[in-house]
Design a protein around this nucleic acid. Sequence first.
DNA 1: CCGTATTTGGTACTTTCGTATGAGTGCAAA
DNA 2: TTTGCACTCATACGAAAGTACCAAATACGG
Lengths: 138, 138
Amino acid sequence: MKHTILIFSALSIGLLCLFRLSKYSYLSGSIAIEIILVVVAVVFFTLGLFLKKKEAIWENVRSPEVDKYKIQQLGLSKREYQVLLEVSKGLSNKEIADKLFVTESTIKTHVSNVLLKLDAKRRIQAVRIAKKLQIINT
Amino acid sequence: MKHTILIFSALSIGLLCLFRLSKYSYLSGSIAIEIILVVVAVVFFTLGLFLKKKEAIWENVRSPEVDKYKIQQLGLSKREYQVLLEVSKGLSNKEIADKLFVTESTIKTHVSNVLLKLDAKRRIQAVRIAKKLQIINT
DNA sequence: CCGTATTTGGTACTTTCGTATGAGTGCAAA
DNA sequence: TTTGCACTCATACGAAAGTACCAAATACGG
């Protein structure tokens, strides 16, 4: 929640600056008002995407033949399942970390948990089991 | 081929010993002739399986949807393909080594070659690629 | 028999994985 | 508001995996 507050604070300040800037530039004609609008639009669109993404993780699971029920039955969390998906693509922990914007340590933790919950010794086994359980594709 | 000769020599000797033993035990009644027969049967059956297995490696490839042509096109040798199959099951190098009766070094060599030929960075990627190329199942 | 490809194996080194443990934060339900 | 779960991150260690290079025995077709 702290993050959200910080982000909105920063956005409010930025918006105020833009307002002042827009007044000034509108008068002076140095910057077109349209550009200001575009900046605002882009920023808020990005923010919208960012906030939406949090809720959109499970949307991806609605691909054919994926047994969402089993995932929850196994106790796999969203993030763990997400990591499992990347693991199944053959990415290294470091690569997954970069892709998901977290550290390698975090990925290691997730992978370890996945191995535990899927009762696998190695990541490649986890992928095999996951496919058998039809919680991932291909 | 040396192996085969050695094995057949050993078997011949063993067989001779069994013949003598059978005569002796038949007369003395200490060992039933049936047991001798069972031993011979088991030994030769095992031998048969052993020899058959060597030729049967590529037989396994005749499973549905496996593109044998592509395997050769990629330059994968029998052994390398065999190792790839075990890798795809999630076995460790050590486990594969034990299963195929060779050392871990050998498996490492094979896996390295497979990674090269399949243009993969990690074994799990190799499995993915192999599946895409339809040279392995599941 | 010869040359090539395969198979096996070793050493030495680096990288990646996996485990164990602890800890701070966010979030939602009780 | 407390409590529990999910997520993040760190450190330290040991186990696997992978690379590079080499060497030797064997298989196999010509």
